[in-house]
Each structure stands twice: as C-alpha cells, then as structure tokens.
C-alpha cells in the first residue's frame, strides 16, 4: 500500500529517452532478415541430399561465408530483441524478469558465437 499520489506513480522514474533505439534495431533487423532468410532457405534447399563435402564446398565460397555470418548475426540479434520484449511483458516479478533477460542475452551470444565459429571451422578445415 503506497500513499504516493497518482501523478507521482504515473510519472514514476521518468523517461529513459532511448526506447526508440530498441524499436528501430528490431525493425532494421527484420528488414535485413527478409533477403538473408530467403537466401539461406534457397541455399539450404539446393543442398538437400548433398554430402558433407558438397556442403563444405558451398560454405567455403567467400560470398556464402559472409552471408551466413550476416544471417546468423541478424537472426540472433533479432530473436534476442523480440524475446526480451516478451519477457518484459509477461514476467512480473522484477528479479525474475531481470534474471531471465540476462540469461536470454548470454544464451543468444553463446549460440551466435558457436554458430559463427562452426561456419568458420567448416570453411577453414577443408
């Protein structure tokens, strides 16, 4: 039970003046994912039934390697931003919200790094 005035509660701690950056980053990521996602799906369809050597040859093309890395960066960045908002919306207790947002952040970094290293390894162990 708080005796703080309704106006005091509504103003809260004020504005952070950076909400728009998250919003824009989400949208720029989404725009980048349209061509990158289409390219990735198209490439994977072309590799259906191929053996590891064929995949390695594909992955070793400089253009494919660059686009793969960009696709992974955009994908994990966008997924991380979107899921953060979902957690902020639906997890009520402050400690659980902050913990889950942190765990999500680290998981996204870990998986993204692992995926990029895998792509590099496939390319350079030919």
């Amino acid at each position: 039970m708080s005796m703080r005035s309704p106006l005091g509660q509504a103003r809260g701690s004020g504005s952070t003046d950076h909400g728009v950056q998250h919003w824009l980053a989400e949208r720029f990521g989404a725009i980048a994912l349209v061509p990158l996602g289409l390219w990735f799906v198209y490439s994977m369809l072309g590799l259906i039934g191929a053996d590891y050597n064929a995949y390695q040859e594909w992955q070793s093309q400089p253009g494919n390697l660059i686009l793969t890395i960009l696709f992974l960066l955009a994908l994990f960045h966008h997924a991380h931003m979107g899921l953060t908002v979902v957690l902020e919306d639906y997890v009520q207790p402050e400690w659980l919200k902050n913990t889950s947002v942190l765990v999500l952040k680290y998981t996204a970094f870990f998986l993204c790094t692992a995926c990029i290293l895998s792509a590099l390894r496939v390319t350079f162990t030919a």
Binding site: G14, S15, T16, D17, H18, G19, V20, H22, W23, V85, E88, D89
Partner: peptide, 14 residues
C-alpha cells in the same frame, strides 16, 4: 518527445 521516448511509456505499444 523526450518524455515519451521510453521502452515503456510509448514503446510498450505492440
């Protein structure tokens, strides 16, 4: 606009 630019005040609109 400065006052509104906040992840909650304005950008919680989905």
């Amino acid at each position: 606009l400065t006052e509104l630019n906040d992840s909650y005040k304005l950008f919680r609109c989905h």
